[in-house]
Design a protein around this nucleic acid. Structure first.
Length: 742
DNA sequence: CAGGAAGCCATTTTT
DNA sequence: TGGCTTCCTG
């Protein structure tokens, strides 16, 4: 056993070496749980008579899965590749690809993501006997209600809703549509596996026999379906190890049920419980702050994180006039830090994606390289999804959603009216829309030439599906469909960006190592694109940039220096979290954010919040600030108590005048950098073509320089610029406020 | 039928 | 902020 427990503390060693039976590992933040998990997999392979595929290790993000696989591989070599390591969704997709047939789906099912779901719902709205107005029932809202129901494994018939509420009916039809299209949404991936395991004994037995040992990471984030799946899988052998931290449960909006972890010992009375309470990540001050904060939650497993690391620097609190000023303060601190630290050591963490703007702006203005994690995912981009839709339709002629997407993209003269008619025909005949098109073309006459043209395109791609390799196939889906030509013809910078994305997609496809079956390659490629998440785009370390992300995306990561920004009421905790249970979750989220920090932790909040049109209103400091023990800030009294009375700055409040009167108030916001272009220079631009190497540029603070390199995703391009006085810097083009000499 | 222009609206977190 | 729908024109 020694090889796997070497260098571990006693609790960690116990978690690694308790191989059989149920095991609950309560792993506090920074307690080395990934290490424990990987060692455990290694130990299992070594100590038990197992094949690699007898082990199932489930994570929540592909990134985490990839990391675990890598580390296991380093530990045990080759065998690691055959261990089942993946996200719940990826693992379920894999299981269903082999076993879904008893449920009436074909094994070549497609995965619908939320955008596909929305399209299904919108077509249902239009059905003549319903005619639901999107105004009365926003499709997105209905989608999330359906999701919530499915998360809780509630079928349409059991949804409780007022008589006038169309949700149950839309939900019912939605399920039928997916079935007809041989499609599964994210929740189905889990739900169908549960159905198989619970209602189809022979299938269940097959998988129970395969997965002799099961590990689940982030167990506090499992929902009902995932819980039932795990339970069904291990019911015989009970070799289940779960790792989690109830204090880091932050996904209840996605159906995560914290009771899964709180009740583990009831579910598995024989469970061994190991607590990993020693923190290897943060300084005492950071830990004290985070623990003090989360202690305000009532229903939690009491635990005491401790560390042998030094006391460390006190937390720093930055009080800003408004969000721009806040970004300015953060920027100033970062500038100071960069003397001794690399940009990659620093993270800015906020509650919502929308908060990133001012910080992006500030970083860009100062020429500090940054990466923004999240935002629009690569695979969620329109052009990517369009091309994938061609492939989906070619492979699966029943995929009406894919058809809807591409039937008139590029424009083929098949308009809304025609398409609507086709959907009606298809529904009446009970066939897929592609079939309806085929029928109409067969009859001929009228204006069926356009439809015939579309059919020919699809048939051509379908023909290629089984024969050529993936790269060629994706290339064909771009070119032979006229899709690429559409963007070429547009001849705008945006279009050029999209073309680059298409190239990137083709390159990604070409990089796939082919198996014997081209169809399976395609399937895997499509699955992967549907299941790829935002967290998977996290920059690998060493990218040399400040990382900006939401607290949710930050989970599982650590940085030497962390700024948690926007700590004011209605933002963090978020305005939509009002009930106690919701506040508790926000608090856990704040806890997650704080515990990402290793050495230095900055907290900041603006005293004014702006609404979309720039209307400012006073903001109160987050209650969480007051809940952090004062000593963590290196002083006896707590930071901003809950406001004695709401701060009521006069309407003319501009920041600087007021600030001078109150010693604790923010310094005046730095004067805005000059935004007006100087004579002879043009402020950039959305225009891409000026970003060519060699272009002379001017930057407000760094002076002039020459573009030496350009990369990054086209919608958010990065420029490496050699500034004459400051050397090379990476700048983000769209927000840089660069002045380019033309 | 397609594409552009103008108005409208809401806006958490994500596999 | 932009992402969407709606309206209008060719």
């Amino acid at each position: 056993m020694s090889r796997f427990t070497e260098g571990l503390n006693p609790e960690q060693a116990r978690a690694v070496s308790t191989l059989d039976g149920p095991l609950l590992i309560l792993a506090g933040a920074g307690s080395g749980k990934t290490r424990v998990l990987t060692r455990r997999v290694g130990a299992l392979l070594d100590e038990r008579d197992l094949r690699p595929w007898n082990i199932l290790a489930v994570t929540f993000t592909n990134k985490a899965a990839g990391e675990m696989r890598e580390r296991v591989e380093r530990l045990v070599g080759e065998a690691a590749r055959q261990v089942w390591i993946g996200t719940f969704h990826a693992v379920c997709a894999r299981i269903l690809r082999q076993s879904i047939e008893p449920l009436g789906w074909r094994r070549d099912f497609v995965v619908y993501d939320d955008d596909d779901q929305l399209r299904v719902i919108k077509t249902i709205y239009q059905e003549s006997d319903l005619r639901i107005s999107p105004k009365d029932y926003p499709p997105a809202q209905l989608r999330s209600r359906i999701d919530r129901a499915k998360n809780g494994m509630i079928p349409p018939a059991e949804v409780v809703a007022p008589r006038s509420d169309p949700m149950p009916e839309v939900y019912r039809r939605y399920e039928l549509r997916l079935k007809a299209a041989n499609a599964l949404d994210f929740n189905d991936l889990i739900g169908k596996v549960v159905e198989l395991l619970e209602a189809h004994p022979t299938v269940a037995e097959r998988w129970q026999r395969q997965f002799k040992y099961v590990l689940v990471d982030e167990y506090q984030d499992t929902n009902i379906g995932q819980y039932r799946m795990v339970k069904a899988l291990v019911q015989e052998h009970q070799n289940l190890a779960v790792v989690g931290d109830d204090d880091q449960s932050i996904y209840s909006f996605r159906g995560a049920d914290i009771r899964n972890i709180l009740d583990f010992e009831k579910d598995f009375p024989a469970a061994t419980v190991v607590r990993l309470e020693r923190n290897y990540r943060s300084t005492q001050n950071i830990l004290r702050a985070a623990s003090g904060l989360v202690r305000h939650n009532l229903a939690r497993k009491e635990k005491t994180l401790w560390t042998e690391s030094e006391v460390g620097e006190p937390l720093r609190l930055l009080t800003a006039a408004d969000d721009n000023h806040e970004a300015e303060l953060v920027r100033a601190e970062i500038d100071r830090l960069l003397v001794t630290r690399r940009p990659a050591d620093i993270a800015i963490i906020y509650r919502t994606n929308a908060q990133s703007r001012p910080f992006e702006q500030a970083m860009a203005d100062a020429g500090i390289p940054y990466v923004l994690v999240g935002g629009r995912k690569f695979y969620a981009r329109q052009e990517i999804r369009d091309v994938l839709a061609y492939l989906r339709l070619a492979m699966n002629p029943t995929d009406d959603v894919a058809l809807l997407r591409v039937v008139n993209t590029p424009a083929r003269g098949i308009g809304d009216k025609t398409v609507e008619g086709l959907f009606v025909e298809a529904r009446e005949a009970g066939v897929p829309v592609l079939e309806a098109i085929r029928a109409r073309v067969g009859i001929g006459g009228g204006r069926t030439d356009k439809l015939a043209g579309f059919l020919a395109v699809i048939d051509r791609i379908a023909e290629l599906c089984g024969t050529v390799n993936l790269g060629t196939l994706v290339q064909a889906a771009c070119n032979d469909t006229g899709y690429r030509a559409m963007w070429v013809a547009e001849d705008t910078d945006e279009a050029r960006g999209r073309l680059e994305n298409l190239d990137a997609l083709v390159a990604a496809a070409a990089a796939v190592v082919p198996t014997q079956s081209p169809v399976e390659d395609l399937q895997a490629f499509l699955d992967q694109s549907a299941l790829a998440g935002q967290a998977d785009e996290l920059p690998d370390e060493g990218r040399g940039a400040v990382t900006m992300l939401t607290a949710h995306l930050a989970k599982g990561l650590e940085f030497p220096v962390v700024f948690v920004v926007g700590l004011c009421e209605k933002t963090f905790p978020h305005a939509r979290s009002e009930r106690d249970s919701e506040i508790a979750e926000e608090r856990r989220l704040a806890y997650v954010a704080l515990t990402r920090a290793r050495d230095l932790l900055f907290l900041s909040y603006p005293r004014m919040k702006r609404s979309p049109e720039g209307w400012s209103q006073p903001a109160l400091p987050s209650r969480f600030l007051a809940e952090i023990p004062a000593e963590a800030f290196g002083r006896a009294s707590a930071p901003p108590r809950r406001p004695p009375s709401a701060p009521t700055p006069p309407p003319s409040w501009g920041g600087s005048a007021r600030a001078a009167q109150r010693p604790w108030a923010p310094r005046a916001p730095a004067p805005a950098p000059p935004r007006a272009p100087r004579p002879g220079r043009t402020l950039v631009p959305e225009s891409m073509e000026v970003f060519q190497a060699g272009t002379e540029v001017y930057h407000p603070t760094l002076g002039s320089g020459t573009i030496s390199r350009r990369d990054g995703i086209p919608s958010n391009p990065k420029l490496t610029i050699h500034f004459h006085d400051h050397g090379p810097r990476t700048v983000f083009a769209l927000t840089a406020g660069l002045e380019v000499l033309l």
